[in-house]
Amino acid sequence: MSYHSIVMVKQVPDTANISGQVMKPDGTVNRSKLPTIFNPEDKVALELALQFRDRFGGTVRVMTMGPLKASDLLRECLYMGADEAFLISDRKFAGADTLATSYVLAQALRQLGNYDIIFAGRQAIDGDTAQVGPQTAEKLSLPQITYTEAILNAEGSTITVKRKVDNGFEVLEGTLPLLLTVVKDAATPRPFRAKRVMAYKNAHTLLELEKMTEGNSLLYMDQLKEEYVSKGLFIPTLTADDLDVDLNRCGLGGSPTKVHKIESVVLGGSAHETIPPTKDGMYALIDKLMEDHIFG
């Protein structure tokens, strides 16, 4: 038996390298000002899905919700071995919290359909909430297994999964379809395949094709799109118009959590005592700690 998987991936700001004016006055993030990377645990989730396909057969589709430039991330997924990629993008989806995000993702998954397993990283490094996976599963009435460390087996509609828990693990048997969130240690993402990079660096979304053909006739545009579709180089974009979504549940307006206040972290120089990094300094420090009744 072969299985069809969909991996939910996210392009995230490289939170380790933040600089400049990244926060907008409304408290949301100006993502265009940030360097972006493939969310690490989503990359592991994709790798696990690819390994699963290698072992049992089937397909791996990937989807991401994000701005138009998130197509970069989808090309990377194609380089790694994904069969198909989908971009979910609309200004109406912007500013979403985890609840509104999971709503749109769930509606996109309904539309794509025909899946046995949905993979996602445990959490994204820009928020660390680990909420979108379970919230998407709930909206689709799917079971979930979070903190997946390994897929031990699959047989018919049953999958056996090893899951991390505090100070240990559980082995779970789940009935497909279900959603898995994956921890970092579950797999090591494969490098991009040179042949696939050559092939898929030309994979484009509709908007990218439109930019390439600026000034040309609409007819030419249609022909070009046909050509890309036939070569398997077309990345479909799903907008609010393409999905069955209630706009009241999307984006900032559909998000129950709101940012009320943002405070920059201002570091006051504390009135600490400076100890020289010398032998005498260390002796003096031990004396002080004895006075503080910490030692002795």
Binding site: P13, A16, I18, V29, D126, K261, I262, E263
Partner: peptide, 8 residues
Amino acid sequence: FGGNIIAT
């Protein structure tokens, strides 16, 4: 956000 802000 990487500890650059405290959000309420």
